[in-house]
């Protein structure tokens, strides 16, 4: 898809979501939560494009949530742009350090190590009495550039989250058109060849990891503000697992479908937890089985994905 059409498409989608939110206030909260989760999933998708699956995306989701939470709760900073800025800085720093450890790993080793790292944070948060332990704590009276968000200000919250989601999509789109972004898809296919082209596979893994961490942290900070609460569950591996499920559902061929998948899942969940609380995970599991078996395209990032045939050459 060329750039002009892509930007037109996301502009239209952005306006559409804003309109739907305006017309149906009852779903604003759900939409906003789905979009903030979608940001974390978008990060995951960017990694999948480089052939990596993280089972620890919750680590940075929680970092984002807790950064926003701690700053507002303990240091009385209530401006969301500052909170999110801090979340971005902190997640970048942490991801940079961690990336040197994990860049050596691929496949299931990468998946497991990211999982274990998120469990380190979980273990710390659960036992930290100052941060409310297992219960977490509340995040209240947040404003974005002076406008109240979170709590009952649901439509303005939705617009803010929507802005960040669109920003995340644009940033990911631009990155995928840089040299590193291009090489990332080669990495998924054939790492030896990438190294023999003079590019560093580990460096590309590190860049993908940091980028993905930042997206997750923004998502986490926004989710914390929206829900008005953060707790260690954000770092728990089941949260990361849910992100993986959404990413698989959306596939990694598009930067927009992760958000759509997050939305679908939030809707299904809001009904399932109400009417069939003990079969929600079962349904989720069966959906994954079916996707892998029948729709490998939904699994695009893990298997095959291809843009349409490009320019014809010569004959």
């Amino acid at each position: 898809m060329n750039a002009a059409r892509f930007f037109a498409l996301i502009a239209i989608l952005g306006v559409a979501v804003a309109c739907v939110g305006y017309a149906f206030p009852a779903i604003n909260f759900l939409l906003a939560v789905a979009l903030s989760k979608g940001l974390a999933v978008l990060g995951l998708v960017m990694m999948m494009r480089a052939g990596l699956v993280s089972f620890g995306q919750g680590l940075f989701y929680a970092i984002g949530g807790y950064t926003a939470g701690i700053l507002s709760h303990l240091y009385k900073v209530h401006e969301a742009s500052l909170l999110i800025g801090a979340a971005v800085l902190l997640s970048t720093g942490l991801a940079l350090v961690v990336s040197f450890l994990i860049a050596r790993y691929r496949d299931i080793f990468f998946a497991m190590l990211t999982l274990a790292l998120s469990m380190i944070l979980y273990g710390l948060l659960v036992k930290s009495a100052a941060l409310g332990g297992t219960d977490g704590f509340n995040v209240k009276s947040i404003t974005f550039l002076g406008m109240p968000i979170g709590g009952t200000a649901r439509y303005s919250s939705l617009l803010v989250v929507l802005g960040f989601a669109l920003g995340g999509i644009v940033a990911s789109y631009v990155y995928s058109r840089t040299a590193f972004g291009r090489l990332a898809e080669g990495l998924k296919e054939n790492e030896i060849r990438v190294e023999y082209l003079g590019a560093s596979a580990d460096l590309i893994v590190r860049i993908s990891y940091v980028g993905s961490a930042v997206l997750a942290a923004i998502g986490g900070a926004l989710a914390g503000i929206l829900v008005g609460h953060v707790d260690p569950e954000m770092a728990f591996w089941a949260t990361s697992g849910e992100f993986v499920v959404i990413a698989v559902l959306g596939g990694s061929a598009s930067l927009i479908t992760p958000f759509a998948a997050a939305l679908v899942l939030e809707f299904v969940r809001s009904y399932a937890t109400q009417y069939a609380p003990n079969t929600w995970q079962l349904v989720l599991g069966v959906i994954i089985f079916a996707l892998i078996l029948f729709l490998p395209a939904g699994l695009a990032g893990l298997h095959k994905r291809r843009k349409h045939a490009k320019t014809t050459v010569g004959a």
Binding site: V174, T178, R182, V194, G198, S200, L203
Partner: peptide, 15 residues
């Protein structure tokens, strides 16, 4: 071909 550019800050420039 893009690989030649995938180094340092140039790697973040649009190809």
């Amino acid at each position: 071909l893009a690989a030649q550019q995938a180094r340092g800050l140039r790697g973040f420039a649009l190809v």
